[in-house]
Every structure is written in structure tokens, then in C-alpha cells.
Design a protein around this nucleic acid. Structure first.
Length: 159
DNA sequence: GCGACAG
DNA sequence: ATCTTGTCGC
């Protein structure tokens, strides 16, 4: 990895399904502003437009930062989809109110799918491509995995 | 009125 | 999200 920035701060907004951005965006934006290298693409642990009002945290952050973002959530917020194949790479459209809002994507054989939706300045096909490309045998994309570990203090900003 | 509900 | 060891599978 080329860089890591961790910020600390108090959270004032509660977790409310559909309003995750109000809770997590402030600190995330702070961390992004401290990055010495501007990301070409950001993987957000949450929904992009696969949101009741089509504006999940990934879409919100992408717009504010004016950077391409992908929403790659570990579970579904809204929408429905058919059952998907068990092999890595299989996916099904995530639909809500008769419109495609993303996909349920099996990133690894036999594991629960992730929910991919466009955030900002990227198409769904391309988003799926980059998520699969960055998973490297794991269920979640590497940027998300590393962020989780660093934030949890299980990895140093250099390893 | 009864579930569902990103992290 | 968080609590949390061992255990099942490649």
C-alpha cells in the first residue's frame, strides 16, 4: 500500500439505517484530506446509490470529495435480488422500486455476497470489475480489509 | 399494523 | 458495530 491516514474523534450522530453518512462522513473526509496522495478510486464500506433515496454514504462522499467511489457493503440496505451462483464472480441485479440500484456479488466461493453499487464518477460494470480485481481471494476488497485492520490496531501503517 | 434496517 | 475460542475447510 502507498499510504494510510487514521483520524480520531467523537461521533455525535447515532447509527440510523439510511443516515449512515451523517455519522461517518465527517471523520472519513478528515482522513481523506490528510492523504498525501489523492486516490484514483475509493472503496466505501457501505452503499452507493443502493439506498432508499439513492444517496448512500459512498455517493455522498464521492460528491463531496469529487473522487470516483464505489459502494461495497457487507449487507443489504434495500432492494431485492435473485439467488446467485456459488462461484466467485457470480452476481445478480439488485432491484428496488423497479430500478437497478446495484448488484449482489459473490467475491469468493461459498461466502456471503457483497453489495456493490456505484458511488460517484464510475459505472456499475466498472465497479464490479474493480471489486473483483481487488478481492484477491478474500471476500472484501483489499483497501477495505486493510482499513479495517489499521483502524482496529491490528496492522501498522506500513505493513 | 408488521417487518426491515449499510455501520 | 461489538462480545470472542475453537473449529471447519482448502
Amino acid at each position: 500500500m502507498v499510504g494510510v491516514e487514521v483520524v480520531q474523534g467523537s461521533i455525535d450522530f447515532p447509527y440510523v439505517p439510511g443516515l449512515l453518512s451523517f455519522r461517518e462522513s465527517p471523520l472519513i473526509i478528515e482522513a481523506c484530506e490528510r492523504l498525501s496522495v489523492t486516490p484514483d478510486l475509493v472503496f466505501v464500506d457501505g452503499q452507493g446509490i443502493a439506498h432508499p433515496r439513492r444517496f448512500g454514504i459512498a455517493a455522498h462522499l464521492g460528491l463531496l470529495l469529487d473522487i470516483p467511489t464505489i459502494g461495497c457493503a457487507k449487507s443489504r440496505l434495500c432492494g431485492t435480488h435473485r439467488e446467485l451462483g456459488i462461484e466467485a464472480g457470480c452476481f445478480e441485479e439488485l432491484t428496488d422500486d423497479n430500478e437497478t440500484i446495484g448488484v449482489a456479488l459473490r467475491t469468493r466461493h461459498g461466502t456471503m455476497p457483497v453489495y456493490v453499487s456505484i458511488g460517484h464518477k464510475i459505472g456499475l460494470e466498472e465497479a464490479i470489475y474493480w471489486v473483483m480485481k481487488c478481492c484477491r481471494g478474500y471476500r472484501l476488497p483489499e483497501p477495505t480489509r486493510l482499513a479495517h485492520q489499521v483502524a482496529g490496531g491490528n496492522l501498522n501503517a506500513g505493513t
